[in-house]
Every structure is written in structure tokens, then in C-alpha cells.
Design a protein around this nucleic acid. Structure first.
Lengths: 152, 152
DNA sequence: TTTGTCTTGCGACCCTGTCCCATTATAGTC
DNA sequence: GACTATAATGGGACAGGGTCGCAAGACAAA
């Protein structure tokens, strides 16, 4: 696990260097937080709080800038669950993401399920002349723990 | 077209009355704007601008309140295309919406396509114990006019 | 060491949206 | 029509998330 983390970190360092950018301590701390919370779908604010523990002097703007940078580098992905905050998630490779989200309307938990759309995109491209580069699917409802509770 | 509009307006008036609420001139103006721009996916700000033309003295807060009210009454639906603003769309009936969106990354145009998920929800409910009440699907890419242009 | 560039932290600021509150409009009753 | 209770309004203050400009700091290359 730890070697994998270091490996990924080196990989990102190279990505940055290729663009004449640096993996500064602040950026490294941010990446580490994201790597250590891959299942978390953290918001920028949450990332900021966690990074503060590693690097107390870091500024909020730096975290935002780093997240934006990582999105541009396609290292992470910016997600939108409709709760008013942007959330971030690692991208396993350079592909568009192909998993989908189950969003619980009671507890807010977000879990992931495999891709469902299969070759549907091809049909849409043909029928609508629309060149698809990515898709987002979210199912809203109640997770197994919250079934029958209604909205919080 | 105009009779249909009046009919819908009466329908909404009744809905409001059933809750001891009134269809005030401000609310009526807001509903009219929404009815006249059913394909527009208007943001609150856009609705406000258009309503101002009909009723120049209306306040922004009133428009927001009216939109929220109409969402509660399930007359309209609040949509989120990830561009940082809420958008609103009429609901044809009392069902959860079952059409999906094609969002063009170049010109921002949003078009609609029919429901794609069919009975997929049942499978997910079984497999994940997740009680689904709605779903959102968006495909991102380039519409027929913008193909090959890349992001704006 | 010097220089140029990338980064940073900070605070000001922007934007969408909500809240509070005093005032006004409305429907229902007499 | 007058009265009353309640719904609704406009305006401004405010909140949360996020961006921007800028002066200062860190770093790599020469």
C-alpha cells in the first residue's frame, strides 16, 4: 500500500515536471490526502481540513489551485453530487471514469457501482449526431441502512 | 398554445389553493416565464431577468421562493448540470423525470433524449439493496454543430 | 549569486442563494 | 364595504463556496 502510494506520487511528480511544474510540499500533502482517502469523495473543504493536519500553514487558495491543477492533469476528477460542493476523486488511469454513483437521500453516503451504459453511447451518437466524451450517472434513493426512512 | 397555457395556469392555481397558497401576480409572472421557455432549462437568474420584464418590481428573493415552491409542488424540477447554477424545467406530470441530457462542452446547449435505463433500476435495487427514487444521467460531449471543435 | 519562473498565503472579492423583517396584498367573514 | 388573519413581498444583510490579484517566498538553472 505504501509503496503504491510512493509510486503514484513519483508518477505525479513526473507529470508535473513534464509541464515545468513542481511537486511542492503543499501539493504533495494534498495529493497524499487524496490518495489516503480514495473512497471518500472529499470536498475541497474536507481536503483542506485534512491537508492542514499535515501542513498547518497551507492556504485554502493553494488547495483549490492544486485541485484544479490535478483535474487539468487528469489525475483526479471533479464530481458534482448536487449538494453544492465540488468533490474530488482519483482517476485510476487516463480514461474517462466508468463507474456510477448511488447517492443516499437520507445519510448522504455515496457508493459506487460498475458502468451500466455499455454500448449505449454508440447508439446515441448515431441517433443524435452527438459526440460523447463522458457520461455521468447518479441514482438517488435510500441505501440499505436508510430504507424506509424518507429524506433527512 | 395559449389555451393550454391558461389551462396549466388554472391547474397550478388549484394546486396552490389546495395548500392555502395564492397565485399572486408575481407567481403568475414567474410561472408564465417558465411556461414560455419550457425548452430553455433556465437558471434562477435567467428566470428573474425575464420575470422583471413582465413585473419590474419583483424581487429576486420572490423568484427564488416561487421556484422553490413550484419544486415542492412538483410542478417544476430543479436540475443541476454542474455549471454552478440551478436550472428549472417543467414536469409534464407527477412522475419523476425520465428523460436525459446531452450537454455540449463547446456551446453549452442542453438537449434531451428519452429514458435509457429501462428496468436497470430493478437490477440495482436487487444487487445493492438500494431503494432508487430517481436517477440523473448526463452525457457530455459535442453536439452535431460543435463536433471536432474541442472545449470552448 | 543572480535571475526568472513557479508558488504561496492572504485578503478582497464574486456569485448564487438564503434569511430576516417591516410592509403590503389577499381571501374570507361580518 | 370594512375588518381581520394570514400569506406574500421587496430589500438588504448575510452565508457558503470558490476565485483573483498581489506582494513575498522558494527553487532551479546559469
Amino acid at each position: 500500500m505504501d509503496e503504491k502510494l510512493m509510486e503514484r506520487l513519483q508518477q505525479i511528480r513526473k507529470l508535473l515536471h513534464a509541464e515545468q511544474l513542481k511537486l511542492t510540499p503543499q501539493r504533495e500533502a494534498t495529493v497524499r490526502v487524496l490518495l489516503e482517502n480514495q473512497e471518500g469523495h472529499l470536498s475541497a473543504e474536507e481536503v483542506f481540513m485534512l491537508v492542514k493536519q499535515k501542513a498547518p500553514d497551507i492556504g485554502l487558495a493553494t488547495v483549490y489551485r492544486t485541485l484544479e491543477l490535478l483535474v487539468d492533469l487528469r489525475v483526479i476528477e471533479k464530481l458534482n453530487f448536487g449538494d453544492g460542493v465540488a468533490r474530488y476523486e482519483f482517476r485510476e488511469n487516463d480514461q474517462p471514469h466508468h463507474h456510477h454513483h448511488l447517492i443516499c437521500l437520507n445519510c448522504g453516503r455515496v457508493s459506487e457501482i460498475e458502468d451500466l451504459l455499455g454500448d449505449l453511447e454508440k447508439k446515441i451518437e448515431e441517433r443524435h449526431g452527438f459526440q460523447i466524451t463522458d457520461h455521468r450517472v447518479s441514482f438517488l434513493g435510500y441505501c440499505s441502512r436508510c430504507r424506509g426512512k424518507g429524506p433527512a
